[in-house]
């Protein structure tokens, strides 16, 4: 039972071939695994190592450093709330605690309906929009407690509202696929 199906293996090769050194495809391939599993399992880490011809330790070092990769099963939407200084001063910590209450037990892993994962985040480089909430990497600026409650409701319905900039966030699998450098339908560009 491998994570990377023959089709995904083929796509991995395609991604790896885009870089002068294969190793550079590490992050895209982690996204590819995340797009397949909805998170990145131990098997997933090993298979990425295998595709790139590097050690699992190298893959894991990267995967554990970056918070974009979920190393435990996650909901369809990862709600990241920044609690670093700028956001904390503007109520980020309170937002985070409120989100905890709203999402209920298991918020840090997966909510009971399988839809959400809460994540306390470090500075996202958008301090001017503090307090900041990200949903699958799409930014929601200056979120209030009411706004947060509406956002969470909408996410539970699988219907994220438009973010402050850019595209509607897809679910974690779809977003990860985009970040792997693959189009939504599996088209290669």
């Amino acid at each position: 039972m491998s994570v990377l199906t023959p089709e995904l293996r083929r796509e991995s090769e395609e991604i790896a071939a885009r870089y002068p050194t294969r190793r550079s495809a590490l992050m895209p391939l982690l996204y590819l695994v995340q797009s397949a599993e909805g998170w990145v399992s131990r098997e997933g880490l090993q298979e990425v190592a295998d595709v790139l011809g590097i050690t699992t330790a190298e893959v894991e070092a990267v995967a554990t450093f970056y918070t974009m990769f979920r190393l435990e099963p996650a909901g369809r939407y990862v709600v990241s709330i920044c609690t670093n200084l700028s956001c904390a001063l503007r109520g980020g910590k309170a937002l985070y605690e409120r989100a905890h209450e709203l999402m209920g037990p298991g918020a840090e892993q997966v909510t009971e309906d399988g839809m959400l994962t809460l994540h306390e985040e470090e500075c996202l480089g958008a301090c001017d929009a503090a307090p900041l909430v990200q949903v699958n990497f799409a930014n929601y600026d200056r979120v209030t407690e009411e706004g947060l409650a509406e956002l969470i409701e909408a996410l539970r319905r699988g219907d994220p509202p438009p973010p402050s900039r850019g595209e509607h966030p897809g679910d974690l699998k779809a977003t990860s696929r985009l970040l792997a450098g693959l189009g939504p339908e599996g088209a290669s560009e």
């Binding site: 590097i54 330790a57 554990t64």
Partner: peptide, 22 residues
């Protein structure tokens, strides 16, 4: 060139480690 040990995690949790099973 035998990269079996790496710095895992970040910040206060950072630590030297091997990948389980390797």
């Amino acid at each position: 060139g035998d990269r079996f040990i790496e710095l895992f995690d970040r910040g206060a949790a950072e630590q030297v480690s091997i990948a389980p099973g390797e």
